[in-house]
């Protein structure tokens, strides 16, 4: 465990604004009696490893990183817990979109077609939608071709670029469908990537959850409790907090929950996405 008295959080630097966000939170927590520091990683796998090795106390994890941490912890007979998340991490969906004039009317019509997806490790733009299509009876790479748009692998699709590229491929006719997070579809229309009316939603996944603050069973209880209480008491009405919330994309923090990771977990089981990672890391953390 980190020896300094500060509570140390890990986060992945998927964008320079991450520094602004966590510097701001550090100041906010410090002013309220919680010594807090953060470490930035360039990828979630390194963050999970540091967490399991006790180099950080809490990790701001993508849903995929959460499952990586949980599975490694389980393998070691330890326990992971999701203590807090954003209101915007609750009940997301992804959609498969097609060109408006396309003859594709149902997921079954995707047979033999090409589906563009985001980064190879993106839960919302690849793993969950492909699992969803598999549950509709279409096995990826057997029943349809998958066109992956990797942007910043290791960052678990936090960067929107992969989804934008997938949509562009759809519009260019290189793909017959594209998988994106629900909110990104209208956002791509607003920013002009998708001409208004050029696409139509073919299908929507069931709801799933996104990021969470993850702790392991050796986390310093009192500091974690204080950290969580401070998060939950932050208000969007507070002018000091609001710009940070706007950058991080939330209106309030909510208690963590893990039932929203079932689809992703099923996807990982189906595709074996993180098996090698877990197999490799767990023995090194004994």
């Amino acid at each position: 465990m980190a020896t300094s008295s500060a509570l140390v959080m890990g986060a992945v630097a998927y964008d320079p604004k991450v520094v602004t966000i966590w510097d701001g939170f550090q100041k906010y927590f410090g002013a309220r009696g919680l010594a807090f520091d953060y470490v930035l990683f360039s990828n979630y796998e390194k963050q999970v490893e540091a967490h399991v090795l006790g180099q950080i106390h809490v990790a701001w994890n993508s849903p995929l990183a959460w499952l990586e941490a949980e599975r490694v912890a389980n393998r070691l007979g330890r326990r992971a817990e999701a203590i807090c998340m954003r209101d915007t991490d609750i009940d997301l969906t992804s959609v498969a979109v097609v060109r408006s004039e396309s003859m594709i009317r149902s997921t079954g019509d995707l047979k033999g077609k090409t589906v563009a997806v985001g980064a190879s490790d993106s839960p919302q733009a690849k793993l969950i939608p492909l699992n969803f299509l598999a549950e509709c009876g279409l096995t990826p790479e057997r029943d349809f071709r998958v066109l992956v748009f990797d942007k910043l692998v290791g960052k678990h699709g936090d960067h929107i670029g992969g989804e934008r590229d997938a949509v562009r491929a759809l519009l260019r006719g290189e793909a017959d469908a594209a998988c994106v997070l629900d909110r990104n579809h209208p956002a791509f229309v607003r920013e002009g990537t998708i001409p208004s009316g050029a696409t139509r939603i073919l299908a929507q996944t069931p709801v799933f959850d996104h990021c969470n603050f993850t702790i392991l069973d050796d986390a310093p209880g009192q500091q974690i409790a204080q950290f969580r209480d401070l998060l939950l008491s932050m208000s969007y009405a507070d002018a000091e907090v609001r710009p940070l919330f706007d950058l991080e994309g939330l209106k309030r923090w909510v208690p963590g929950r893990t039932q929203g990771y079932a689809q992703l977990s099923a996807a990982l089981n189906r595709f074996g996405t993180i098996d090698a990672f877990v197999d490799n890391l767990a023995p090194r953390c004994k």
């Binding site: 209101d87 909110r183 579809h185 209208p186």
Partner: peptide
Amino acid sequence: SPELEIDLRAWCRESG
């Protein structure tokens, strides 16, 4: 509108 539910859900989530 066929996409009303999807767009409304995403918008409500982002808007709190």
